Simulated scan of single mutants.
Amino acid sequence: MCALEEIPPGEGRAFAVDGQQVAVFRHRSGRVSAVQAACPHAGGPLADGQVDERVVVCPLHLNAFDLTTGESTSGQPPLAVHPCSVGPDGRVGVEL
């Protein structure tokens, strides 16, 4: 899908995967995670949100979502969470 180096540590980027927009995050720990790219509340760009090891915060209305379960910590509908990993070639793979 993309090279890990395309995503700076502590940030996210949006990518098209099989016709769906996915937000992929590279955590400072080296872990990667992926969720649907649009916030279910108002379609905010989650890849542009603040991210830590556990949650992403939508930049539009500050709704927070758990990156492992997709559950909202602020009362919104849950996100779709996608399994992802970094291969031996340094490329991030995402499963829908």
Rank of each mutant, 00 (worst) to 15 (best):
M1K: 06
M1W: 04
C2W: 06
C2L: 15
A3I: 00
A3M: 09
L4Q: 10
L4N: 04
L4R: 14
L4P: 03
P8C: 05
P8I: 02
P9V: 05
G10N: 05
G10C: 10
E11H: 13
G12I: 04
R13C: 02
R13Y: 01
R13H: 07
D18Y: 04
D18G: 11
G19E: 09
Q20H: 13
Q20W: 05
Q21D: 15
Q21H: 09
V22N: 01
V22G: 07
A23V: 03
V24H: 00
F25K: 00
R26Q: 11
H27P: 01
H27S: 05
H27E: 12
R28L: 14
R28N: 13
R28V: 14
S29L: 10
G30I: 03
G30A: 12
R31D: 15
V32H: 08
S33M: 05
A34T: 04
A34W: 08
A34L: 09
A34S: 10
V35K: 02
V35D: 08
V35W: 06
Q36G: 15
Q36R: 12
A37S: 15
A37C: 05
A37R: 02
A38G: 00
C39I: 04
C39A: 10
H41L: 07
H41I: 08
A42I: 06
G44A: 09
G44I: 06
P45E: 08
P45Y: 05
P45R: 03
P45A: 13
L46P: 00
L46E: 03
L46G: 06
L46M: 06
A47N: 11
D48Y: 05
G49V: 04
Q50A: 14
V51R: 01
D52K: 05
E53H: 06
E53M: 02
R54P: 00
R54K: 13
R54Y: 11
V56E: 02
V57T: 15
C58W: 00
N63G: 10
A64H: 00
F65H: 03
F65L: 07
D66S: 04
L67V: 07
T68N: 13
T68G: 11
T68F: 08
T69M: 06
T69G: 06
G70P: 06
E71D: 15
E71Y: 07
S72Q: 10
T73C: 11
T73R: 14
S74H: 12
S74K: 12
G75Y: 06
G75A: 09
Q76S: 15
Q76T: 11
P77S: 12
L79W: 07
A80H: 14
A80T: 13
A80N: 14
P83C: 08
C84N: 03
C84H: 04
S85I: 00
S85N: 07
G87S: 13
G87Q: 13
D89M: 10
R91A: 11
V92G: 02
G93V: 14
V94K: 09
E95P: 03
E95L: 13
L96E: 03
L96C: 12
